[in-house]
Write a protein that binds this DNA or RNA. Structure first.
Lengths: 213, 213, 213, 213
DNA sequence: TATGAATGAGCTTTCATTCAT
DNA sequence: CATGAATGAAAGCTCATTCAT
């Protein structure tokens, strides 16, 4: 009966929480954990600062909540890839392109992860939610590699975790460090052309590696 | 005879500046720019806090000085590789292994770069010194790729900058993000064994890519 | 019945702001802008130092708020003089005596103005409030001078602004510089007798000037 | 023989001291005692900061030295007026115009005096030199007033000290407070025309007062 | 559920001054 | 006579957090 019954009391509550989370995500992404300001988060979210503490307890806990959110988001997106419906080479390419595209579309993901790692992931280790979210794509990728090997198109002995990390590496580092790289190489790595070249290069590297000669 | 030249009057000055730089490098590496504390830097360097401002002007400028230092260090180390004395495949492997080993030996390099990028490299852009330090290894790598292609061992069409970034990517990301990755995959990525595997994997990926089938 | 209206929620806020303003006025008057200490202001006002920044933003802005306050005060007092109800000579004498008495009763006004001028009134120029407070007494004084001239008791060609400044000058300088003057002339200029003589002298000078022979 | 022999050792010493005094005078005039920076004084004087302490002991003592200097200067200038050679009205006018002109030419004099007074002249009271410099012009002015009265051109009962202070007041206040006055009256009081008008007005006021009807 | 007022601890930076040569 | 190196104390200001309603 009351399945779809809206709970009027919690409407604004949900909205406030959501607004805080989004504001916090942007603020943490932009300034890092230490550089982020609770005041600015309240301002961005257009809520009273006290409310942040009411809902999330502390700046650190809020940061954790943000991290859990962005992790859940990328897992959800991975889920929709349906890699098993593709041939092994296509699946690997698809995953590689998806990874790049996702980072491009969610630049905050990168700086948030960097912050988490600066603090030695002490936030994540506290979070059972994230550990349970353990990427199911690893299992899938393992299956694909195995099938490819059986089909005679993939080389053998490839560890799914290593490959998954490598795929992420090639996209992540370029975007995460684009400012210093651009400064050092004296060329803008974020023009449309440069990005297309990188995307293509990454696929070449990954497929050049997994494909049997 | 005058080998042991009389200590110049600025001897202690140099020592103080050096001590500050090292302490700052560690502090910034550990806590990021915003999280670093000038007090702690003074304590680590065993100098009066005021002296930091006397020599470096501000926290930001000190950060820049640290960045310039670590960049100079890695450039110096790259210079000693003598890649041109090796066959193209050996040279690429050597560069790849060097990159990994350097990051392993200088973990502070990674977090410092992350901090610099969080702030959109605004520090680096102010530094003509760094821009002039523009990696000469790129030129070398280009030559190697060209020679390998002529020898018929390397595929053609490989951009030296892209390859250089990819080599760095595969090492950097693993180390930079090892905390979150370890948490997510539920296994310690920094054991001796895991590191050896990664080192080997990276070489496989890079050589798998550049070598002609 | 509701005479003793319920304390509005901001009651304490107002009280705190007022306490800060008063404490700041005294501190700035005593030590000048640069010599004033925010810590001391907090102590004098018996509020947390942080609250000063919460309400006033910065030491400079607080100084401006103080200036606006003392200007508003003297304008209010001038308004109550009802000069137009007096004969021209009485009105001029009244204004002159009021000016002297006001400075005597509000010694902080003088040092605050000196501070403002040391900083080239950059605070005041930012304040539209003060500019709008443009002394209406000037208009009144102009009317009085004109009437006196028509009555044949005042000399002609007297500029109201010049006269107003001169009236202020004769009182202000004596009080502002009384310390150096006392030191140089080797006599205490602030005894009751000395003050009475000065008050009388000022009236003589001003009236000796405006009155027709 | 060696009457005019330069003392080489003290040449630079004198020059340094003089440079410091001038730099300090400007710095104190510009920023007040509390706002002045010893570093800036050293910079302005182009001497090592340590030298300031070597010669003057402390910031406070340096300020006193500056004060003594500017007092000596104005006394010297007054001495050259030869007021006794003039008719009483001319002498009074001459002194009035001199006072105005001197303040115009030495704006630092005004802010320095304000600073001294802010600190309740505690510096001056320590200085026997200044007390001994007790303005001899007072004596002269007294004589002039007496002669004028005997001549039947001046009113009687005029106190020389009061008159001297009034002459100074009318010039000093206008210049000292010109920034706030300009802001309030919304007109620039320092244009050439405005200054000429003030100069003339001051003479009118003083002579209007002392001259017998 | 929501909020304006308030705070203690600590931040970066400044400053007059002294040390050592 | 002159100076670069160094410092203790304290300045203005910030920040995450809590109180009171």
């Amino acid at each position: 009966m009351t399945d779809t019954a809206p709970e009027p009391r919690s409407r604004n509550a949900d909205r406030s929480q959501q607004a805080i989370l989004e504001a916090a995500r942007d603020e943490f992404a932009q300034h890092g954990l230490a550089g982020a300001r609770v005041d600015r988060i309240a301002e961005r979210a257009d809520v009273n600062k006290r409310l942040i503490y009411y809902y999330f307890g502390s700046k650190d806990d809020l940061f954790l909540a943000v991290l859990e959110g962005v992790y859940a988001d990328i897992r959800t997106a991975e889920q929709k890839l349906h890699l098993l419906a593709l041939s092994p080479p296509d699946a690997v390419r698809r995953l590689t392109e998806f990874t790049w595209d996702y980072y491009i579309d969610h630049p905050e993901f990168i700086t948030l992860l960097n912050s988490a790692n600066l603090h030695q992931a002490r936030h994540l280790r506290k979070s059972s939610r994230v550990r349970e979210m353990n990427s199911p794509v690893i299992q899938t990728l393992g299956d694909i590699l195995e099938r490819g090997r059986k089909d005679g198109v993939f080389r053998g002995g490839v560890d799914a975790v290593q490959l998954y990390i490598s795929i992420a590496s090639l996209a992540y580092f370029y975007l995460s460090n684009n400012h210093t790289l651009s400064a050092i190489f004296g060329r803008d790595l974020m023009t449309g052309k440069a990005r297309a070249e990188r995307r293509s290069h990454i696929c070449d590297v990954i497929l050049g590696y997994v494909l049997k000669d």
